[in-house]
Amino acid sequence: MSDAGVVRLLLFRVGTLVCAADAERVREILPRLETTRIPGAPPPVAGLVNVRGTLITVVEGWRALRQPEPPASNGTHHGTTVLLEVGGGRKVLGFTVDEVVDLLALSAEALDRRQALPGIDPTLVRAVGRRAGQLFVVLDTDALLTPILSS
């Protein structure tokens, strides 16, 4: 979050939720890739994908955010994978979303501090914003993804 109070956010939809992640944390946006299951990993982990020779663990967005399973999802070829930096850029994780909505630059004041929203764990919410009259939650991606990786 640089440029004196200007925040750049990547907006995406997971189920009925519109979420945002700090755009500086977004490494890349890719189509959905074929995953390899990791036995023993917690349910939100979709598996491993190959991103140009690097192996990246992918987290299923709807499972991590406890959203209903997307109807069109037959496990493959649905949605988008967003590569996010976790833990200060030391690790990169994939996060599947239904679709990427927008890339926004807005002033930090336009966001409300964390507040409770129905249907989402408040500890995962960093702030709440509004776009075209619709609410979106700015996710604390570290809080969401670090526990899944911690081993």
């Binding site: 036995p39 023993g40 990993a41 598996g47 994908v49 190959n50 192996l55 526990p147 990786l149 911690s150």
Partner: peptide
């Protein structure tokens, strides 16, 4: 990066000829 809970029987991963890990 093995997620929490991964069975302790893997020493790594590789990429097969079809590009899938």
């Amino acid at each position: 990066d093995a997620p929490a809970g991964t069975l302790p029987v893997f020493s790594g991963a590789t990429i097969m000829a079809d590009g899938v890990p």
